[in-house]
């Protein structure tokens, strides 16, 4: 029976010691410890969050990079295409111009030739006329009594000499 009868002294001392412990530990142990644990948990959480955020940002950045790369590729392709077109166009234009120039040259040459030819023919005609006159002179000197038939013959002959 003694075993299950609480003594007044022990009740007093237990209460005293327990409350002393409670008060001292509450101020000097539990408060700083629980606060420190809480702070650490918060800092771990924020660190994890920021790591997650950094990962997201990285991903975003990567996809952006990819996009930029893609764009650059497209741009390069477009530029190349344009350059090729420009090149082709320039070549074609040059070809055309050259052809035109050549045609012009040929034309002018031809014109020149024709002019020269006409001049030459005219000269020949003149020479022939002079020659004819000389011939006629000679003939006239030799045969001053020539008939009108002979003159007709001469002019006919001269017409025949005409080229073309």
């Amino acid at each position: 029976m003694d075993l299950v009868t609480p003594g007044i002294g022990l009740i007093f001392w237990t209460t005293f010691i327990f409350f002393l412990l409670l008060i001292i530990l509450r101020v000097f142990a539990w408060k700083p410890i629980l606060n420190a644990v809480k702070n650490r948990e918060a800092s771990i959480k924020s660190a994890l969050d920021s790591a997650e955020k950094a990962k997201d940002d990285m991903k975003k950045l990567q996809s952006k990079n990819e996009e930029i790369l893609q764009k650059a590729k497209q741009e390069r392709e477009a530029l190349m295409k344009e350059a090729r077109e420009v090149k082709d166009r320039i070549i074609n234009e040059a070809k055309e111009k050259a052809q035109q120039e050549a045609a012009k040259l040929i034309e002018s040459a031809r014109l020149n030739i024709r002019n020269e030819k006409t001049a030459a023919i005219a000269e020949i005609k003149a020479q022939v006329a002079i020659l004819s006159v000389e011939i006629a002179e000679k003939i006239l000197r030799e045969k001053l009594t020539q008939s009108k038939e002979q003159d007709a013959l001469i002019s006919r002959l001269l017409d025949d000499v005409k080229i073309n």
């Binding site: 530990l25 700083p32 410890i33 702070n39 650490r40």
Partner: peptide, 15 residues
């Protein structure tokens, strides 16, 4: 035990 512990937890942040 716990005063020592509380003291060390009080001193440094994120101990």
């Amino acid at each position: 035990l716990f005063l020592r512990m509380g003291n060390s937890y009080n001193k440094t942040k994120n101990i």
